[in-house]
Each structure stands twice: as structure tokens, then as C-alpha cells.
Design a protein around this nucleic acid. Structure first.
Ligand code: ZN
Ligand code: ZN
Ligand code: ZN
Ligand code: ZN
Lengths: 142, 142
DNA sequence: CTGCTTTTGACAATCATTATCATTATGCGT
DNA sequence: ACGCATAATGATAATGATTGTCAAAAGCAG
């Protein structure tokens, strides 16, 4: 790959990702694009998302059942996410205490080239309220 | 599932997991068991590992390419892991600063029932040394 | 416009995990 | 120790997300 070409597909994925709140799967984004009339192919969505992620224009994480989810994020800034596991609402959070902790714990154990995965899941205020009303005895929320 | 029965398969998985350093995949553990003469089935290994994880006797995480990895862990204590991405060496680490941070950041945003995923990846001391020797110009280590 | 190279997309191929379901083995009451 | 209800096993098929293939289409420099 010597040069990088500009295609409407790449832009379509970038836009669709920007129009989405929270994290989406490649398949989900592909469905959304198709529903809005785009004839874009599934493999292309996968490729575009992977590119966006490596270029730093999108963040990715593994959902609890192992599928990759993507989200348009403020580029260039390292940050983490607070995600509602019910409605998908996502908040970008900076985590300076965590950054320094991660660095030091790696260094203390002789590790180099340290990276980290830090995600917080929970129920957002709204979903918490809804859950409290429907049934106070909230069973295993798997 | 009303009662829980005791089978040699469950014990075999528990033992094999204990004999393994770092994280293993279900498939990997199954191979190891087979190599050591056990006729245990693959589906059983998957089921046993899932059970161990829910019972708190094993920790699990998603590897970078999405497969689930398991590890025997000191039961009952909440902790996280520092993992060498080359040799798999794993260190259990307590992360009190992160625990409090996660709680407060969730609360500050109105989230309840907060859980978190925290993992640190890097190169252990030994692998760092080896990498430095083989080639100073370490290319993209994907 | 032309030619070269990247990118696309329909489809097949992978590969980890899960579902089936007939068969086996466990734990309990006798 | 015996037998039974039923949970557990395992060979195999099914699933489903992701990646590979490769001919056709599109971007871009000259
Ligand atoms: Zn919510
Ligand atoms: Zn960070
Ligand atoms: Zn190592
Ligand atoms: Zn923690």
C-alpha cells in the first residue's frame, strides 16, 4: 500500500460512524448504511473500520460476547469509556490516575512497551431509574 | 441445573488450568489435556471453563484477536493482570487506585452497577531483552 | 484520456464457540 | 450394594463473526 485513495465508501463509513452514538459492530454499521440506501459491501465496512481504528479516528473494544465494536472518537487524545450496558450511552473519560498507575505497575515489574485496556460498564442514570421502577428485585443482569 | 455433580473431567480441567502459567484458550487447554492422555471432549472443556469462571475460580479475558482466555486465579480476590504479549507471562496485580477511580467516575456520571475491565499488556523483562538484541529497529510488532 | 495500481464486493473459507442429542455416569434414596 | 432420575459428556452439526479470494470497477498521476 503505497498511496491511500479516496473513496466514497470510506467517507460513508466515517459519516455513519459519526452519526452513531455509542459503539457499533461492523455488521450493525453495515445494516445501517444499507437501510439508508447505500449499496456498500460488508467487507468494505470491515476494512474501513479497521483503517479508521489504526489511523486513530475510531476507538474499538471487544463486546462482552467477543465481537469488535467501534466508535468515532475525538482523534489524537488517549481516553477511555464509560458505557451503559443497557442503552449503549457512552461517555469519554480521561483517566490520568489510571495512566500513571499503568505505567508504574508495568515498570515495577520490568515490563516495557506497556499498553492497557480500561473500560467501565454500568447503567446510566436513566436506565438505572427505569430498572428501579420495573422491578426492585433486579436479578442477574447478564 | 438443580444439583451439581462431580466428574473427573471437571477436576482434570481445574488441574490442567492450575498447571498452566498465563492465560490459555479453551482449545489450547483441550490440546494439552489430550496430549497428556486424557480423552476429554472439547465441548466439556468449554463448559468446565465457563463454570470455573462464573464460580470465581478462574479469570477470563478476551485476547486481542477476540478469543476467550482463562487462567486459574487466587479465588475471592478482585485483581487484574499484567501480561506479556510475547511469552504470556502473567502477574496478578492489585489496582486500588483504579478501583476507587472507576467507582467515582461512574458515580459522577450517574451510573450504577459499575463494573470494569482493566488489563495491562507489555513485554516482560526477558522478552524485552531478547527483542532489543535481535533487532534494534523493531518494526510493527503486530 | 491512458495506464497502472488500489479498492471494492460477492462469495467462499476459517475458526472459535454453541447447540443437538443419544449415550454414559453420578448421587441419592432404598 | 442396587436402581433410578437426571445431570454431564462428547461426537458432530450448526452458527456466526471475521477474513481471504479474485475478477471487475474506480482513483489518480502524467
Ligand atoms: Zn442507559
Ligand atoms: Zn489509558
Ligand atoms: Zn515475555
Ligand atoms: Zn478492578
Amino acid at each position: 500500500m503505497v498511496v491511500k485513495r479516496n473513496t466514497w465508501q470510506r467517507e460513508a463509513v466515517r459519516e455513519a460512524l459519526g452519526d452513531t452514538d455509542g459503539f457499533v459492530s461492523a455488521q450493525g454499521l453495515h445494516s445501517a448504511l444499507r437501510d439508508s440506501g447505500s449499496p456498500i459491501g460488508l467487507a468494505t465496512v470491515y476494512r474501513a473500520l479497521a483503517d479508521l481504528a489504526t489511523e486513530g479516528d475510531a476507538d474499538s473494544l471487544q463486546s462482552l460476547d467477543g465481537e469488535s465494536l467501534y466508535r468515532a472518537c475525538t482523534p489524537g487524545t488517549h481516553h477511555h469509556h464509560l458505557i451503559c450496558r443497557n442503552c449503549g450511552l457512552t461517555v469519554e473519560i480521561s483517566a490520568d490516575p489510571v495512566e500513571t498507575w499503568a505505567r508504574s505497575v508495568a515498570a515495577d515489574n520490568g515490563f516495557t512497551q506497556a499498553a492497557h485496556i480500561v473500560d467501565v460498564f454500568g447503567l446510566c442514570a436513566e436506565c438505572s431509574r427505569a430498572a428501579a421502577q420495573s422491578g426492585t428485585a433486579q436479578a442477574d443482569p447478564r
